[in-house]
Write a protein that binds this DNA or RNA. Sequence first.
DNA 1: AGGCTGATTGTTCCC
DNA 2: GGGAACAATCAGCCT
Length: 165
Amino acid sequence: MKVTRGKGAVKKDKNEVVKPVEDRAAGKRKAVLKASKSSNKRTKNVKSAKKDPNKPKRPPSAFFVFLEEFRKVYKQEHPNVKAVSAVGKAGGEKWKSLTDAEKAPFEAKAAKRKLDYEKLMTAYNKKQESTEDEDEEESEKSKSEVHDDDDDEELEEEDEEEDDD
DNA sequence: AGGCTGATTGTTCCC
DNA sequence: GGGAACAATCAGCCT
């Protein structure tokens, strides 16, 4: 079955626009539609389309970092609201309401996550070369790629408190 | 019983 | 350079 099942949740039935947000229409895609499963456009080879065991997930953008915190607050003030879309809309509006200075701490954190993500991607891309040579053999499982965790991975909390200029 | 959907924006990746 | 996809969330609805 396709991921694009006939879910009834989708309101594509009619032009039932909940709220005509002009901004949203600008870059609005037809939902996220997880076509990556079937139509792997990002994947050059169908062969590579297979699952990526160590494919690093993308770090949360500044908006997401803000959203995580926003969700907590939103739920406290709106415990009845369980719709994720509600928080998304509310968060989106609030996000735009924030100024660069307010978004700064969120962007800073997002930047940190990105740096870490780049490292993961480097290792990931590197692995891709290895796997590329190999057909589809998941030899990595045979190999003990279990890197010791003794490294200092707790480098978080490097919060540079933005002092007033 | 499990899996995908929605909605937000940003960021990232592949071609 | 651009376009398309995906990142969290969580209850709800469908297969």
